[in-house]
Deep mutational scan, measured.
Amino acid sequence: WLKDDEATHCRQCEKEFSISRRKHHCRNCGHIFCNTCSSNELALPSYPKPVRVCDSCHTL
């Protein structure tokens, strides 16, 4: 799980985070992405409801 202060850019699109481009953790891989690159939800065994995942984890 990557800490918020360790990420300054989206792991996928590499756009810089700002007040309007917020950080979101993928609940599967733990990396930090922008909203555009992590707008999917997936049912994971460790969560009772579908949770936010990055595009890469969603296509696995």
Rank of each mutant, 00 (worst) to 15 (best):
P50R: 08
S56T: 15
V53A: 10
R11Q: 13
D4I: 06
R21E: 09
R11A: 15
C13E: 01
E14R: 04
F17D: 03
D55T: 02
C37N: 06
R11Y: 14
S39K: 15
P48F: 01
C37D: 04
C13F: 01
L42R: 15
R22I: 09
L2H: 07
C13R: 01
A7N: 07
K49P: 01
H9Q: 06
W1R: 08
E16D: 09
C37H: 05
S46P: 13
F33N: 03
C34R: 02
Y47A: 12
E6F: 06
W1Y: 15
A7H: 08
C57L: 03
E41V: 10
G30C: 03
K3W: 01
K23L: 04
C13P: 00
H9D: 05
N40A: 08
R21W: 00
E14N: 03
H25A: 14
R21L: 07
I32H: 06
L2P: 00
N40C: 00
C10S: 00
H24N: 06
V51P: 04
S39Y: 04
C37V: 02
S18A: 05
C34H: 03
S56I: 14
C57Q: 04
K49I: 05
T36H: 15
W1T: 06
E6G: 12
R11I: 13
C26I: 00
C57R: 02
S56M: 14
C26E: 02
A43H: 10
R22Y: 05
S18Y: 03
N40H: 10
T36C: 15
N35H: 14
K3I: 04
R11V: 08
C57G: 03
D5W: 03
S56G: 15
A43V: 12
S46H: 12
T8A: 07
H24S: 06
S46L: 14
C13L: 00
E6A: 10
D5T: 08
R22T: 10
F17M: 03
S56W: 12
T36S: 15
L44G: 08
Q12C: 13
R27T: 13
Q12N: 09
L60I: 13
C37W: 02
I19M: 12
C34A: 02
C29Y: 00
S39L: 09
T59S: 13
Y47T: 11
K3S: 03
S39R: 11
R22S: 05
C37Q: 03
C26W: 01
K49S: 10
K49N: 12
Y47R: 05
F17K: 02
P50I: 01
R27I: 10
P45D: 11
S18R: 06
C34W: 01
C37T: 02
H31W: 11
W1G: 14
N40F: 04
E14P: 00
N28P: 06
N28D: 08
K49Q: 07
E41S: 08
S46Q: 12
Q12Y: 06
W1F: 09
R27F: 14
C57N: 00
H31C: 03
P48R: 05
S56F: 15
H9F: 09
K15V: 05
S20Q: 14
F17C: 01
Q12T: 03
T8N: 06
D4K: 10
A7K: 04
K15P: 00
C26F: 00
C10V: 01
Y47I: 07
T8S: 11
H31S: 07
C26A: 02
S56P: 15
S39T: 13
S39N: 11
V53F: 02
K15T: 08
